[in-house]
Simulated assay, not measured.
Amino acid sequence: MTTGPSTPGDSARAAEDPAPAGEDLAALLTRALDQAPGKTQKDLAAAAGIKYPTLNAWMNRTRGTSRINPDDLRALANILRSWGVETSPRQIFEAAGRPVPGPTDAEREHRLLEIYRQLPTRSQRALVQTAEAMRQAASAA
């Protein structure tokens, strides 16, 4: 577990340290719920907008984590942090065995959407196919 920054100025990096070695998503979520007194799997699922049976299957390791929507992983991190659990999106993604996406930037997303909307239908389809190929290549890396 992270014990805090080892040198001055490392506080931002400490929050992004990877999950403890060998900790998968089930172990991370179990540990996180232990750190959130009074919160249950059902509470976490509801707050994150994830179906309870799905979250329960991840925690019982009866469903794989390779296809979890990145927004669901971000939601888990946000909810856990709002409950006072020390975790980061990086820890959640790494525990799920998923590549850690770069930070979202509303201005870049808005610009990309503007460009997409200005394209003819055929070019929009090509852009979506290219983006899908980029995502698959990133998850294979």
Rank of each mutant, 00 (worst) to 15 (best):
Q136Y: 14
P103K: 09
V85A: 01
S88R: 13
W58V: 04
R63T: 07
Y116A: 00
A48P: 03
A19D: 00
A141M: 11
T2A: 12
P5I: 02
A133M: 04
E109A: 08
V128L: 14
A95S: 10
L112E: 15
T130M: 12
G84Y: 05
G4M: 13
P99S: 07
L55S: 04
E94G: 05
D17T: 14
P89V: 08
R117L: 10
S66Y: 07
L44N: 05
W58T: 03
V85E: 06
S66F: 09
E16G: 04
R125I: 07
T3Q: 15
L73G: 00
T30E: 15
T62K: 03
P37C: 06
Q35L: 10
I79Q: 00
P37F: 09
L25S: 02
W83T: 00
S6T: 15
A21V: 14
P120W: 02
A45R: 02
S82A: 08
R63P: 06
L119K: 09
T7Y: 10
L33D: 12
Y52W: 07
L76D: 08
K39C: 04
R13D: 15
T65N: 03
S123T: 09
I92R: 01
A48L: 03
G22C: 08
A138P: 03
K39E: 07
T87Y: 00
G9D: 07
A141K: 10
A140R: 14
T104Y: 07
I68R: 03
P103W: 00
A47Q: 03
I115H: 08
A133T: 04
A75P: 02
G49W: 04
A27C: 01
E114Y: 08
M1H: 13
D34Y: 01
S66N: 08
A48H: 07
W58L: 01
L28Q: 03
F93E: 00
E109M: 11
S139F: 13
M59Q: 04
S11G: 09
D17E: 15
D10R: 15
A141R: 13
Q118S: 14
P101V: 08
R125H: 11
A47H: 06
L113E: 14
A21F: 11
P5T: 07
A47D: 06
R111F: 15
A47P: 05
E132L: 15
S88D: 06
T62D: 00
T3A: 11
V128Y: 03
G102D: 12
H110V: 13
A14N: 12
I115S: 06
F93D: 00
A15K: 15
R81N: 02
P103A: 03
A15H: 12
A133L: 06
Y116F: 02
D24M: 04
L29A: 02
A106F: 05
Q118C: 09
G64T: 03
I115M: 12
M1C: 13
L127H: 02
R81D: 01
N69L: 12
K39G: 04
A57W: 05
S66D: 13
R98A: 08
R117T: 07
A57L: 09
R81G: 06
P5Y: 07
T30A: 14
N56M: 10
Q124K: 14
A19M: 00
D72E: 14
P99M: 01
P20G: 09
T3K: 10
T104D: 15
W58P: 05
S66R: 13
T87M: 01
P99G: 01
A106V: 13
Q124I: 09
A138E: 13
A32G: 09
R13C: 10
